[in-house]
Amino acid sequence: MKFSLQRKQLCIPYFIFLILFVVIPILFILFYAFTDSAGNFSLYSLIAFFTSTNKINVLIQSLLFSVINTIICLLVGYPIAYILASSKAKFNYVVVMLFVMPMWINFVLRTGATRDVLTWIGLNGGQHPYIATFIGLFYNYLPFVILPLYSTMLKLDKAQIEAASDLGCNRFQVFTKSIFPQTIPGVVSAAQMVFMPTMSSYVIPETLSEGKIILFGNSIYLGFSNNQWNSASFMAIIMLAIVCISMLVTRNYTEKDQEGGSSRW
């Protein structure tokens, strides 16, 4: 009895935190999304969003950016994570840290530095906005791919892999039939960690493309900064909906393996 009371008390700070910083903001967004500037209920923002070619255009572009960035990050991050997890060297942990270390530096500063480096190697956003933006996105989200994959791969069932090769699989088949299926939870959570942040990223496209590329996050900011709270809030709702959809789609894959690394990250 005493224990349960204590536990309840322990929950109070978290509860307050959730209410203040999760529930209330979402209610605010919902309120603004479905009202007009005078505060009356209105579907104007909804209609305006789906009839505006610009906004649909930005949405599709952001989705494309997210998909491409996710694929690139996975393609690069997967082998790195595999090598790090399977080699027995003692400095593995250090290498992982090296990949993760940039994340400790302030995000805006880091992007500013990326901009200088890109200018220095001749890939400035003025002339190559798309390349510069992709490099920035890739660089910023690669650690988010490596970490979950690395922790999943540490738990790879070595016996199963050995069994697969013993039973006649060539190396490619070992990968497709044994290793990859085992790492799917990690891949899914890695993809989730990259997909949505890419779509809503604001500083990276703004800074690295010199303001020439507008993603969904920038578009929302444009609305807020021009006092269009209602339509901007509706766009935030759209973003939220996309998060929910992507969670629903990937739910089946993450649930299969409760002990997998995905739950850690």
Binding site: N54, L64, I214, L222
Partner: peptide, 20 residues
Amino acid sequence: NDKIVSMWEDVKVNPLPLWI
């Protein structure tokens, strides 16, 4: 103001190329 904001969006948003 709202019309100029949407003009500004038109300027800043890159139209998707047809092939895409």
